[in-house]
């Protein structure tokens, strides 16, 4: 019994710092967002209770293109899981097998994460400019004709969404690669050797020995990739997608409503949707990875 009470106290003591941070800085804004989301409010004037009006509006009106925003975020999440992560995994496996200059490659490929997003954004703007690198490359390959593709145009002739997605996928390959590389490396060498002796090919070893033992790492990567996609903001905003553009994502819509349009209620409602969605995905991913245990 005595052990039990001291345990309770020590649990509290150990959890306290995290709980204070969590409730003070993270939960409170979340609660306030939930509260504000039920109002029409410009942030400084009177608040008008409108129930779920903001939620209704964002899914029915064109002025807050939340449906498109969510679609873009889900597309990004899908591409992130479908392209970025396999690429990272491929690189990690390749490096993990032992290649000359392994550590050099590992460090280089992590660099884009360390370089300021402003620089990355500027670089891609230069790549996308009408008479720029990308159009010239496509032209020399015979993919486009006389007319330039206007990558960063927001209209129906532009490719803004694609232009925003490409660098976002590219920039974080190294981030996931580093995580996964660690996973690859921590597979006991004896396991691999055993499989090899049994006559498995390199690919079979990866497929049946290495990848299954990396499940936890993969889970974390998928969670980071999906929640990161749902919250994406920086690069889109730097490449010009920060208004209600054709590349709008929930975060840009949130900023736009909250600080350009002075609609704190609507901005909060968007935040609520984002939180619910991220959490739902995190739970879902946990569930999917657990099921196969």
């Amino acid at each position: 019994m005595k052990r039990k009470t001291t345990d309770t106290i020590s649990i509290i003591v150990f959890l306290l710092p995290a709980l204070i941070l969590f409730f003070g800085i993270l939960v409170l804004p979340m609660v306030l967002s939930g509260y504000y989301s039920l109002f029409e409010w410009n942030g400084v004037g009177d608040m008008k209770f409108i129930n779920f009006g903001n939620f209704k509006e964002m899914f029915t009106s064109d002025l807050v293109p939340m449906k498109a925003g969510l679609l873009h975020a889900l597309l990004l999440a899908g591409l992130s899981v479908g392209i970025q992560l396999p690429l990272s995994l491929g690189l990690a496996l390749m490096l993990g097998r032992g290649i000359k200059g392994e550590r050099f490659f590992l460090s280089i490929n992590f660099l884009p994460v360390l370089i300021s997003t402003v620089v990355i954004g500027k670089l891609w703007s230069a790549i996308y400019t009408p008479k720029g690198m990308l159009n010239n490359l496509l032209r020399s390959l015979g993919i486009i004709g006389e007319k330039n593709i206007l990558w960063t145009n927001d209209g129906k002739n532009g490719k803004l969404l694609l232009a925003c997605i490409i660098p976002m996928l590219w920039q974080y390959v190294g981030y996931h690669m580093l995580l996964m590389y660690a996973g690859v490396k921590s597979v006991a060498p004896e396991l691999r050797e055993a499989a090899k002796i049994d006559g498995a090919t390199t690919w079979q070893v990866d497929r049946h020995v290495v990848i299954p033992s990396m499940k936890q790492v993969l889970k974390v990567s998928v969670i980071f990739a999906v929640t990161g996609s749902l919250k994406a903001y920086d690069l889109i905003s730097i490449l010009g997608g920060n208004k209600n553009s054709s590349a709008a994502v929930p975060s840009t819509l949130l900023m736009n409503q909250m600080f350009d349009a002075n609609r704190v209620g609507m901005g909060s409602a968007i935040a609520v949707i984002m939180i619910i969605l991220c959490f739902a995905f995190a739970v879902l991913i946990n569930f999917l990875f657990r099921e196969r245990d």
Partner: peptide, 18 residues
Amino acid sequence: KMFMLGITIPVQASLVPV
């Protein structure tokens, strides 16, 4: 699980409350 909620919160929404 509750702590995991933390990775879901968009910073933009917490600017004013914080």
